[in-house]
């Protein structure tokens, strides 16, 4: 009885702890500042998009949104391409090379790229890759390769070997086996990895902060940070910006909860 009460109470409490702050933001984006401060929890007097309009007119959030879309799509695409090719090769190599290659990526998992911020900043400066979206794509690919190779190699290793061997005997080249057997079969694993990559790339702050100073090249998280600096006291505007930055991921989450949860836990478990 007491146990049941504790269980119900703690479940409800944590649910409220997530719901209430989320609703404050959703409501706040349709409120004036006075409303936000006086009654953060109440429904807005009138649902409207005024704040969104002001936001897009008075700041370059629109540009940042576009930059984020470009950087995320390109990063996820190239990471998946390179990682799936490499993982397939690793899983098919019987030699030491495959093992060594895999071990190198594992080091990258244990020691996050953050420890390299000093040399990466200097290196990218020297190579002229700062203030460029392509520079961000490159560093995103580098930091997400280890986890992707890890997940995909584990998946390829579980596929029955005979399937590949039969086609190899038939004279199919490795590239053909990769394209017409391995890739189609690994759609679920690729999907899970893609979602994981989408979320972390879309939300990444550190490297944009390091490499981008030009306001026109900002991604959304970076834009959000500087926006907060400017609109320090206007939480209605800040919440509107938070909404704009979160809506794509939230919408995807609502439609594909299962794949999202699978993807984001695969990233953790395999990592």
């Amino acid at each position: 009885m007491i146990l049941k009460f504790i269980k119900g109470f703690s479940l409800l409490l944590f649910a409220l702890l997530i719901l209430v702050p989320s609703l404050i933001v959703v409501f706040g984006a349709s409120k004036t500042d006075a409303e936000v401060y006086n009654a953060p929890l109440s429904l807005p007097e009138r649902w409207n998009l005024d704040n969104y309009r002001t936001l897009f007119e008075s700041s370059n959030v629109g540009q940042s949104f576009l930059n984020s879309v470009i950087v995320t799509l390109a990063s996820v695409f190239f990471t998946l391409l390179l990682a799936s090719l490499c993982s397939f090769a690793i899983s098919r190599m019987i030699t030491v090379t495959g093992k060594v290659l895999f071990a190198l990526f594992t080091i990258g998992l244990a020691i996050p790229g953050q420890v390299n911020i000093v040399p990466i900043f200097i290196l990218f400066n020297d190579l002229g890759l700062t203030n460029k979206l392509s520079g961000l794509v490159l560093i995103n690919v580098v930091t997400t390769l280890p986890i992707s190779v890890f997940i995909l190699t584990a998946f390829f290793r579980e596929l029955p070997k005979e399937m590949f061997e039969v086609s190899a005997i038939d004279g199919a080249s490795p590239l053909r086996i990769y394209r017409s057997i391995a890739l189609p079969l690994s759609r679920p694993a690729l999907g899970a990895t893609a979602i994981f990559l989408f979320v972390i790339t879309w939300n990444e702050l550190l490297f944009p902060l390091l490499l981008i100073t030009d306001p026109a090249k900002r991604t959304l998280p970076l834009s959000l940070i500087s926006f907060r600096g400017e609109y320090f006291s206007s939480y209605s505007m800040i919440f509107t910006a938070v909404m704009v930055a979160s809506i794509p991921m939230v919408a995807m989450y609502l439609f594909m909860q299962r794949s999202f949860i699978a993807g984001l836990t695969a990233g953790a478990v395999k990592g």
Partner: peptide
Amino acid sequence: LYFFPTILSSVS
């Protein structure tokens, strides 16, 4: 619901 915050950005 509990999983939901995971998809948000650290900045948000």
